[in-house]
Computed example of a mutant assay.
Amino acid sequence: MAVLALLVIGAGSFVGIRWFAGRDDPTLPTTTRALAAAAHRHMPAEAKLVRVREGLGNTADRFVVMLDYEIGGRPVSFSLEPNKQLPWMGDFDCPSEADAPDICEIRTLDDGTKAAVAHLTTSGKQGTGVSTKRADGEVVSVWVWPSPTVSDLPVSFDILAGMATDPLVGLKTNKKMLELGKDLDVTPMT
């Protein structure tokens, strides 16, 4: 049985979540709030969650959620993108289209999972992302903005990799994450 600890402050913001023992399998469709709660468990204690933004057009096969933080006095955004609609990930390789990342390499994470690690400049912003492909074909990408280089992340690479490989950061969740995220304020992305 899993046990969660949560400190709630104000209207829908929370300071910390810790996962103490075991996990329940994700079998329920995720929500923006549940996805945010699941990802937030990986953040360091000093990371202050400022805002949760929901992507437009989220579906059962594709979600986009932005978590805006203040870390060490600077604003940092994390984009969570679980998706079953990425054809370029068929053979789990880096994309070769015109909108491909500036840098992309396939790495093997500590747990043996293959991950595409990419650096991208878009609309003048630089970001770093980690994408993993799950056995059911779901690809989970976690991006951090801004991130001038892969070696200049505002959090450790292990945090990004942990989010990308967490079974609860995806298109399916469990009752505990639905409950944990239910009071988060969510605004639409513009």
Rank of each mutant, 00 (worst) to 15 (best):
G73A: 14
V64Y: 04
E81N: 04
L49T: 01
A39P: 05
G90S: 11
I103D: 11
A60H: 06
L109N: 03
E105W: 05
G137I: 00
M89P: 09
K175A: 13
G112D: 00
V140N: 02
P148M: 15
V140S: 04
G170P: 02
D102E: 13
Y69A: 03
T128D: 11
A21F: 04
V64E: 03
L153Y: 05
V169I: 04
I106W: 05
S141L: 14
G57A: 01
S79Q: 08
R41F: 09
D158F: 03
Q126W: 07
D24I: 15
M1R: 06
T108L: 11
P154Y: 15
V50L: 15
A38N: 03
P154N: 12
L180T: 15
P146S: 15
R51F: 09
V144F: 14
P188V: 03
D110M: 02
R62V: 00
Q85A: 08
V3Q: 07
A34P: 07
T149I: 13
L56H: 02
S131W: 14
I159W: 08
A98R: 12
G22P: 03
S79D: 08
P154K: 09
H42D: 00
R33D: 12
D110G: 00
P44Q: 00
A39R: 06
M177Y: 12
F78Q: 01
T31M: 12
M89T: 02
P87L: 09
V117Q: 15
A36D: 06
R62N: 07
C94V: 05
T108E: 04
L168S: 01
Q126V: 11
L168G: 07
I71E: 10
F20T: 02
L184D: 09
P188E: 01
A2I: 07
L67I: 10
V15W: 06
